Computed example of a mutant assay.
Amino acid sequence: MVDSLGGPYRVNNMLSTLHLKTISDANLKIMGQPAGEVIEQFATESARIAASDAILNEMT
């Protein structure tokens, strides 16, 4: 999340625009680690499903 928005400064800028409390840089890093792991697992599973679908389409 932090990287896609352009860093912790822009994340806090977006949050303040939405009238939400800002988050410290350290807490953003702590929250980003588990989120990154979940996103990586989802991407791996999605790629595996897409590959198996492509193989099945080639065989039929």
Rank of each mutant, 00 (worst) to 15 (best):
M1K: 02
M1H: 07
V2E: 06
V2I: 12
D3Y: 15
L5K: 03
L5P: 14
L5N: 08
G6A: 00
G6E: 11
G7R: 13
P8K: 11
P8N: 12
P8D: 05
P8E: 00
R10D: 00
R10H: 08
R10N: 03
V11A: 03
N13I: 04
N13M: 04
L15V: 14
L15Q: 05
S16P: 03
S16D: 15
T17C: 13
T17S: 14
T17G: 10
L18T: 14
H19N: 07
L20G: 07
L20K: 15
K21W: 06
K21Y: 05
K21S: 01
K21H: 11
T22C: 06
T22W: 12
T22P: 13
T22M: 03
I23D: 04
I23G: 05
I23E: 11
D25H: 00
D25T: 03
A26V: 14
L28R: 05
L28H: 02
I30C: 04
G32W: 00
G32R: 08
G32D: 08
Q33W: 04
Q33V: 15
Q33G: 02
Q33D: 10
P34A: 02
A35G: 01
A35P: 05
G36K: 11
E37I: 09
E37F: 08
E37N: 09
V38R: 03
V38E: 14
E40W: 02
E40N: 07
E40D: 09
Q41R: 10
Q41L: 12
Q41F: 04
F42C: 11
F42Q: 12
F42N: 03
F42T: 13
F42A: 15
A43P: 03
A43N: 05
T44L: 04
T44H: 00
E45F: 07
S46I: 06
S46C: 15
A47C: 10
R48N: 05
R48T: 13
R48H: 00
A50V: 13
A51T: 13
A51E: 14
A51F: 09
S52H: 00
A54S: 04
A54G: 06
I55R: 12
L56S: 08
N57D: 14
N57M: 13
E58C: 08
E58L: 12
M59I: 15
M59S: 10
M59C: 08
T60A: 13
